[in-house]
Amino acid sequence: MRTRYTSLIVALFVMAFMYLPIVTLIAQSFNASRYGGRWMGFSLKWYEALFRDSAVINATVNTLAIACAATIFSTILGTCAAWALNKYRRSKLQSVHYALVYAPLIVPDVLMGISLLLLFVSMKVQLGMLTVIIAHITFCVSFVTFTVLARLQDFDFNILNAAQDLGAGNFRIFAKILLPLLGPGIAAGAMMAFTLSMDDFVVTFFVGGPGSTTLPVKVYSMMKHGAPAIINALSVVFMALTFTVAIIGQFCTKRKF
């Protein structure tokens, strides 16, 4: 079938297109030449420079702190939301709730960033770590909710009644049934929140203040003010970090596409 060959060619082209920039970037981070273009030999000097840069270390600490806080809160909020959406499916309140949880998924980052900025400015809240964490929780909640909800929809609640009939206490039901069966879904939601928080630039850019510089914001300002070659190295380190989280997430949930 010719359509099949055409689509194979497009698929190969797309794969090349997807990986070319990443491969170039990784290669460039080991290139001794400052401006790339020509290969000047293998070097780790950009990595050395990177680990000596205190602003970068600081941004890393901020990124991880924000991601942890956003993950914890959005996982709690999202899990409660998913539970309510699943348990009270038929209630009117839940259809409003559903729309409210769903809407942030389609709103572009720019709009979410500017609207939160306007909220904080009109409430006279000082921009900083707190505002960034609040913003991150807000866009993570929906993703956690829908991940956990997908798990809950597959969950057979009769098991809980059966356990109760067999004399299991609330704690035992929680520890022996809910945690092992729903844990992976919740963990997947949490991982998603963590990666989304680490990945975010646009919202953080709007609601961040002095002292809340995250890695993406740092990379942005480095790019804007003459790109020093350490961004290559920084990107590779960052990539390794996200890959680790993503792979853990992949293992946490065996659900396929």
Binding site: T24, A227, N232
Partner: peptide
Amino acid sequence: IPLWTNFLIRIFAWRVL
């Protein structure tokens, strides 16, 4: 997998390329 790289880093990779 390319989505696992940071959004800004993907843009930066294109700037390098």
